[in-house]
Design a binder for these strands. Sequence first.
DNA 1: GTCTATACGGCGATAGAC
DNA 2: GTCTATCGCCGTATAGAC
Lengths: 214, 214
Amino acid sequence: MFYLNCIDFYTIVMQNKLDTQEKIVQSATELFLEKGYDRTSVREIASKAKINVSLMNYYFRSKEILFETIINLLIGKASGALKDVLNSDLGLNEKIRQYICKYIDMLISNPLLISFILAVLNRNPEKLTKLKVADNLYNTDNFAKQLEEEYEKGKIRKVNPEQFYINMLSLIAFPFAFKHLINKKNNFSQKEFNEFIKERKEIIYNMLICYLKP
Amino acid sequence: MFYLNCIDFYTIVMQNKLDTQEKIVQSATELFLEKGYDRTSVREIASKAKINVSLMNYYFRSKEILFETIINLLIGKASGALKDVLNSDLGLNEKIRQYICKYIDMLISNPLLISFILAVLNRNPEKLTKLKVADNLYNTDNFAKQLEEEYEKGKIRKVNPEQFYINMLSLIAFPFAFKHLINKKNNFSQKEFNEFIKERKEIIYNMLICYLKP
DNA sequence: GTCTATACGGCGATAGAC
DNA sequence: GTCTATCGCCGTATAGAC
């Protein structure tokens, strides 16, 4: 009976703790994605999470630390499947096709992510190491080896792997960062933008494969 | 003599006014480019320009208005020559070659510009019209017509002009927004990054031309 | 452990003296 | 045109109630 009570009490406490933390992270994530770090106030996060302002400083010691938690969370979630594709043992063409497809689908599901990441990268460049983000966002070691091997087999022309990967990433990601201007210029709705982006899967694949031909 | 004094007086007053305004714009531009709008305080701008804080609100009614002035100034300066190339009567291949080359040279001279612009675009999307920026950054009407004509002459394959222009822009601009990560991953110095970028002139040209082949 | 109340210095903006 | 004083909001720290 005693132990049971203890466990119940502990469960309830931890449940509340998780709930409160969860609520803070959830509210803060939405606000940071939508408005950016600097334009989101801690009072706003607290009010959205329906908690007291100073509770945030209890769970996360500062707004900055809360932010870093959320960055790692967002990027971790987004990059996992993509890294798997890049490091898989798929053939080169199929790997490129799947990478483009999955990356674009992920960004369609998280349309604010690219602008958020670019803002983070350019806000505190010196903190990049701390954010553990670099490796998840830009790691091409296996892919570079594969490009090298295919070249030696005479299947593709010689390319600089870093340049090639940056080309692929540029074609995939940049339109999301430029989204508002694309929508305004072409009078696109949200849905039409997504259609425009989906068309790009094949375009990007064709451009890259065409360029790789020996 | 009377008139002369008047003119002198007027000249001096206007000169001071221009100097003060110039100093504010100059200081603010540097700080906005380097640290972004939100992380730059008006007190910092004033201190850098060696003027009193409230003088800024005298010349520009608010920090926001000063910012918009600077955005239009920066983008106007940067985009002029580029628009001329795109709307010139150069042949398609030569136009693409020159556009890539001039765009990249401009961004090498203004390495902070792309991240600045992307931050602006995503900060207040609804204000895009007000900023007169859209037309300068993304206007492809003449270029689209040229692509159409070349296709009808059978000289290139059929392409969606908007997609093609976005591809070109992505390949040119994105690496600058991703600069810090590229430098970190490859241990690039500033100079090595510029070399990496300059290599891209030919790579991007080849990719685009290769893709256009019928 | 969880939460409230409150205080601090810095922020953008402005009214008003000179 | 220039400067001082001041306002309300911000992120953060902390003392203390429960």
